[in-house]
Design a protein around this nucleic acid. Structure first.
Lengths: 275, 275
DNA sequence: GGCGCGGGTTTCAATATTCGAAATCCAATG
DNA sequence: CATTGGATTTCGAATATTGAAACCCGCGCC
């Protein structure tokens, strides 16, 4: 079977388990593996058979079989018996909701984000870190159709996305180094390719409050990123604003949209401050 | 369990595990328990200590300790060490995203939903089943502030919500009986209280295509529900439209909004049909 | 300071689960 | 009807998990 070599750099999760957690008597391997199974599914690979999961995770087939069986019983997977494949089940959504609901910054920020998204005919999103990605917890786009939509739960690589670099800029130097080092180790090609841009972005944020990413994540989308200057509930929050490249006038991103995103974030910070 | 059971606290999920899956050599208990830990968190109880989790799940403290340790290492929980409590981590969001992204019906439906939400100054949501709840996979509300927002991932009890009864109406009779029976067993008070309304709703849908729920889930929100007449990807999809009770004119829900929601769903079905 | 209390964590032997090669099953295909 | 590819079952050995009890620790109280 032509296992489609995805562009996305998957490391070896199986190896990860064996090496990183060996001898840790606290660590519940089965739980980690089950969750790793859920993580195999992506928007483009929404249906997977046990074999494919086994290949992706590096877990033995019988183990995968039991894990998918369990996850299916619990509603986290659905079994399509005509294809003999699994896909994510509705239960995966409900475990994320309490997190969203308890982040009041989302409600506060939403109108400001919508306003900016409308102004620049693009999309404005709020993200927090997950591993080496930023996950969107809120996203607004202008009414008329922006090709593909950013959506809550979308994960974008820290290294490539404006929102990711904004996040890096907000980190304490020591932690920033730690994250960069993880990227270096786990996504070496990505690191080589984007490290200069990352450094430039950090400098931009110091100088102007925002950074730009010109089609580095998706060729046709140019974006600016801004971090919040305070944490929310101990979590660093960053914003981006992405606009279709073709609709941008020269200099508009740097001179208009960037500063507006900065202003928006400052407004949100202020609204948060007064609780 | 996941359902917002108001009065009656909790059944015994631990017992649930032991009894329901004893002797099932396929079933990965540790995985199920870990996921059950994640399900303990709710919007109103966003932070829990090991002891609280232990009480809610019925699992012994050391077991919970190890599970939270594992989940924290993986990013599904965050540890707040000033309080010694846990809260959901960003990783819970990213496992749900591929499911959302692969449901193309969401994109198709969104503009129609938005239009209706604007028209009736309320919110329009699309839900699928999770256990005895309906989970929202898409939700639109009109711009001006509707008190509390329905959001993607929100779970509402099938028995009480218009969207849940719409779902029931779309089920094959045998499966409907099965679900109703589960409700009877697992949410007995809820069943006693709402069974007559449920029957009425089923009849309404047969007769007019939609059902109404007048403040049964939230006192101040009146809602109508409509099921889709075809499954999407094997999954039954239902819609609701909720409006603040005070802003409704007499008869408006039945004579105007209900039929409009029906029309909306028919439009979406048609758009889906032509792929 | 001493005491008790309410978590949280560690210990450790008993127990249950997982491993994984090989066998089996099953449905689709030639 | 033989073949093929994947999913599932089998089973003894290897390993991980379990959970009662003990331990730890910070806190408030007397």
């Amino acid at each position: 079977m032509g296992a489609p070599e995805s562009a996305a750099p998957l490391s070896q999760p199986a190896a990860t388990f064996s090496y990183e957690h060996e001898g840790d008597r606290q660590f519940a391997t089965t739980l980690a593996r089950g969750l790793e199974v859920l993580r195999c599914f992506t928007p483009t690979e929404a249906m997977l058979g046990n074999k494919e999961i086994s290949v992706r995770t590096g877990l033995p087939k019988p183990t995968v079989s039991r894990l998918t069986y369990t996850l299916t019983k619990l509603g986290y997977l659905r079994h399509n018996m005509r294809l003999g494949k699994y896909q994510l089940g509705s239960a995966v959504l409900s475990i994320g909701y309490p997190l969203l609901a308890s982040m009041s910054v989302r409600q506060i920020a939403r109108p400001f984000m919508k306003e900016l998204a409308d102004y620049c005919s693009g999309s404005v999103s709020m993200g927090i870190r997950d591993r080496l990605n930023m996950v969107y917890v809120e996203s607004c786009r202008n009414g008329n159709g922006f090709s593909t939509l950013p959506d809550i739960g979308t994960a974008v690589p820290i290294a490539q996305a404006a929102v990711g670099r904004a996040f890096l800029a907000a980190l304490a130097p020591a932690e920033r180094e730690a994250v960069l080092n993880q990227i270096k180790v786990k996504q070496p090609e990505s690191y080589r390719k984007y490290k200069p841009q990352i450094d430039k972005s950090l400098e931009e944020i110091r100088a102007r409050g925002f950074c730009v990413a010109l089609g580095e994540l998706r060729r046709e989308v140019y974006a600016v990123g801004v971090p919040m200057r305070r944490t929310v509930d101990g979590e660093i929050v960053a914003f981006n604003c992405g606009v279709p490249a073709f609709s941008l006038k020269k200099g508009q991103l740097e001179d208009d949209i960037g500063p507006r995103l900065v202003a928006m974030v400052r407004t949100i910070e202020a609204s948060l401050g007064m609780h």
